[in-house]
Nucleic acid binder design. Structure first.
Length: 423
RNA sequence: GGAGAGAUGGCAGAGCGGUCGAUUGCGGCAGUCUUGAAAACUGUUGACUGUUAUAGGUCCGGGGGUUCGAAUCCCUCUCUCUCCGCCA
């Protein structure tokens, strides 16, 4: 949620940002500013009545103690009148507050100045390409066929147990999955991230904090009795660890990592997009989250991008890094870099990580603040990224490293996997 | 699932209708003393809103009520703890 101060101080900045994000309903900005002015006027009125009532109440107490009952009664009448007026104002006030909130909550975050203009994924900016795309023979197989050939993943079995999009990993496939999780976590921990193992279900307040609610309600699974949401990413519980807290400045940056399964309903997808591991309802991911001072957040973002890039290099996968355009960015993000790896049998790029700076957008909702040296409290910037999402890494590893007699395991992964090759 | 107790500032813990945003202790910060540190002593130490700045207003788990006035009384919800039952 955008801080209201921004509207008062820099309306043009808000408007320009919203345009870049292709937000249509720009009239909301003026509406919010108007409401805010009215609201504050009423607030002042309300406060002065409260002040009068407070003084009168104290006087009544004193008069009663002095035995001047008549005068006390008179004052009581005054107070009663004031309170009637106050009630009216309070009603208007809460109405305005709600109106303001409803208007401001639907506004997306403002994009960073480096975010390119654009509406569709095609307009994302490719800022870097790395690694070498392997040359495969004509008999190359897509990962779903490799999965069947070596008995690594059973998609139909998952359909039997649950439904489509819930693959069952088995044997060497399950082991590869476990090895990747371990590898990613260790890599993050070595870079100074603290490991967390959070709940896989969260309550409404938590889902709201990171912006899943009210924006993406339909994308999450919900439990029937409790109304808990199955997490679509570890970002949700992990960032919320610091909800409603004031962090000492010397404890920044806070660096957290967590492995969790992720659950996404992803209604409306079809065709080659959902084939095999390309898009599933349950998948594993290792996430990194940082909370920082505002002035550091963009260098921290660069650091996280380098961190994820290095991980892909260790796996020897061909990758590219995209800076998302305004129209393709998520609701809450100010700047997002997507990482895609090339899956050499499908001959397509697959998104495996998304690294974003949310600036104060999430922190404002969650009231995550820090205390400066001067004693002033202000909102932190929140950042997160995947390092990494598992299924598409699996897909690309399988396809790119396939040989006639098996699938090679990259060197960096071998200590975790326990052998050099899947046969 | 059954029975009982409780939720107050970073933590511990008082307050049970009026000058309480809240006694006190610990912790934190600053100072005195010291070559330095510790100890001791002194002072200071919540958040939000708001004003040019003062001021003012709000907040004692959430919501509602009684009252001129509520942390204090009533209702309700949520959560925590203790005991019993059940269970991996």
């Amino acid at each position: 949620m955008l801080p209201i101060q921004l509207f008062r101080q820099n309306k043009d900045l808000v408007l320009d940002g919203l345009k870049k994000k292709n937000f249509k309903d720009l009239d909301l900005v003026d509406k919010i500013i108007n409401i805010d002015e009215q609201r504050r006027k009423l607030q002042v009125e309300n406060d002065s009545i409260s002040a009068a009532v407070n003084v009168a109440s104290k006087n009544i107490g004193n008069l009663m103690a002095a035995g001047k009952k008549m005068e006390a009664e008179e004052l009581k009448n005054d107070v009663a009148k004031n309170k009637e007026k106050a009630k009216e104002i309070a009603n208007q006030l809460s109405e305005l507050e709600k109106e303001q909130f409803d208007a401001i909550i639907v506004l997306p975050n403002l994009p960073h100045s480096t975010v390119p203009f654009g509406k569709t994924p095609e307009e994302n900016e490719i800022i870097k390409t790395g690694g070498i795309i392997p040359v495969l023979g004509a008999d190359k197989l897509p990962h779903w066929e490799l999965a069947a050939k070596y008995g690594l993943i059973d998609f139909e079995l998952g359909t039997k147990l649950t439904g489509s999009g819930f693959p069952v990993y088995m044997g060497q496939g399950a082991r590869l999955q476990r090895a990747l999780i371990q590898f990613f976590l260790e890599y993050n921990i070595n870079a100074g991230y603290k490991e967390y193992y959070p709940p896989y279900m969260v309550n409404e307040a938590t889902a709201y904090g990171t912006g899943q609610l009210p924006d993406k309600e339909g994308q999450m699974y919900v439990t029937k009795e409790e109304g808990f949401y199955l997490i679509p990413t570890a970002e949700v519980p992990v960032t919320n660890i610091y909800r409603d807290t004031i962090i000492a400045e010397q404890d920044l940056p806070v660096k957290m990592t967590a492995y969790t399964p992720c659950f996404r309903r992803e209604a409306g997808s079809y065709g080659k997009d959902v084939r095999g591991l390309n898009r599933v309802h349950q998948f594993d991911k290792v996430e990194i989250v940082q909370l920082t001072q505002p002035e550091n957040s963009y260098s921290v973002l660069d650091g996280m991008v380098a961190h994820v890039e290095n991980l892909l290099q260790l796996l020897g996968l061909p990758y590219r890094i995209l800076r998302l355009c305004g129209g393709d960015m998520s609701f809450a993000s100010a700047l997002t870099y997507d990482f895609e790896v090339y899956s050499a049998a499908q001959e397509r790029w697959l998104e495996v990580s998304s690294v974003s700076n949310f600036e104060v957008f999430q922190a404002n909702r969650m009231k995550i603040r820090f205390k400066e040296g001067t004693g002033k409290t202000q909102l932190v910037h929140t950042l997160n990224g995947s390092s990494l999402a598992l299924p598409r890494i699996m897909a690309s590893l399988m396809e790119n490293y396939q040989t006639n007699d098996g699938i090679n395991i990259p060197l960096a992964l071998q200590p975790y996997f326990g052998s050099e090759k899947i046969k």
